[in-house]
């Protein structure tokens, strides 16, 4: 039995650890935008223009990409290991980071050891820290136009195409309004659609619960009947088992109350404290400090 419990515990721990590892992996990173020919565009910290590759964290949690690999060679997934120990490799949720493909890795974490060739198609891939798990890859077609980036339609998802605007380290699509709210304003200005949909969901949820517990209740009643029958040695149990009338409960309650009341009466250790009522302050009253004046009782003389 103990071994069985231990086994269940170990299995749970194993499953949890798998979940944990998954959650911490960089698998939610995406290659998001690439500018191959940078003639009059974004400059790096050294004031130079180079090809750049933008990565995007497509999840709602921060992801650390340290130890992952960037490559432009299918046969060499570990071409550029993203250095460890740089706090900037921690990418916040739904945020971007930029790598300069200038073949000058000595210039810092974000300067990688290869360049892209504008005259031919370029393969770019991001590999996980094991150097085997492919996270994302893209082949940039040859013939890229200068200062026109090639990226995803939407950040982290959608098809690749030449983008209308070059957007290094920022969203490929700039949202200047809340699409959901605008949609409701346009199509449901009276709120009827929302009311119908939301009430349908609320009713569905509670109807599902109702149906579930209707049958669970039936099962429970029949199980309790079987149990009671077993205890009673096979005799039939009344059909209304478990459904007692209010009068029965009232009678039981009254009986219990009476018993407890009687018990109180026969207690011989009840201490009753009568409050001494005086209108003046107890601080100056002698009644609390002195005994009452003794009185002579005539009976004692006899």
């Amino acid at each position: 039995m103990t071994n069985k419990k231990l086994g269940i515990l170990l299995l749970s721990a194993f499953l949890l650890s798998i979940g944990g590892i998954k959650a911490q992996q960089a698998t939610s990173m995406r290659i998001n935008e690439v500018l191959v020919i940078n003639e009059d565009n974004f400059v790096d910290d050294y004031g130079k223009r180079h090809t750049w590759i933008e990565l995007f964290n497509n999840s709602a949690g921060s992801v650390n990409i340290q130890g992952c690999y960037l490559t432009n060679d299918k046969n060499n997934p570990k071409k550029y290991p993203i250095p460890k120990g740089d706090v900037l490799t921690l990418i916040p949720p739904r945020q971007h980071t930029l790598f300069w493909a200038d073949n000058e890795p000595d210039r810092g974490t974000f300067h990688i050891n290869f360049t892209l060739d504008p005259s031919k198609e370029n393969y770019i891939a991001l590999y996980d820290a094991d150097g085997k798990t492919l996270i994302d890859e893209i082949t940039i077609p040859a013939g890229q136009v200068a200062d026109v980036s090639y990226g995803r339609e939407m950040d982290g998802s959608g098809a690749w195409k030449p983008l209308k605007k070059v957007t290094p380290s920022t969203n490929n699509v700039t949202l200047d309004s809340n699409e959901k709210i605008d949609n409701f304003k346009e199509n449901d200005s009276f709120g009827i659609g929302m009311t119908i949909t939301a009430m349908a969901v609320v009713f569905c949820g509670l109807i599902l619960l109702y149906v579930c517990f209707k049958y669970i209740g039936k099962l429970s009643i029949s199980a309790s009947k079987r149990k009671a029958k077993k205890v009673a040695g096979g005799n039939d149990i009344a059909a209304n088992v478990g459904i007692e009338s209010g009068e029965i409960f009232a009678a039981i309650s009254m009986a219990l109350y009476e018993i407890s009341d009687d018990n109180h009466d026969i207690e011989n250790t009840v201490l009753t404290i009568h409050k001494v009522k005086r209108i003046y302050s107890p601080w100056s009253s002698k009644i609390y400090g002195l005994r009452e004046t003794p009185t002579i009782q005539k009976n004692q003389k006899k």
Partner: peptide, 12 residues
């Protein structure tokens, strides 16, 4: 609620 689950619909 469990003893009379149809009352859930009032809550909805």
């Amino acid at each position: 609620l469990i003893s009379n689950p149809k009352l859930m619909l009032i809550g909805a």
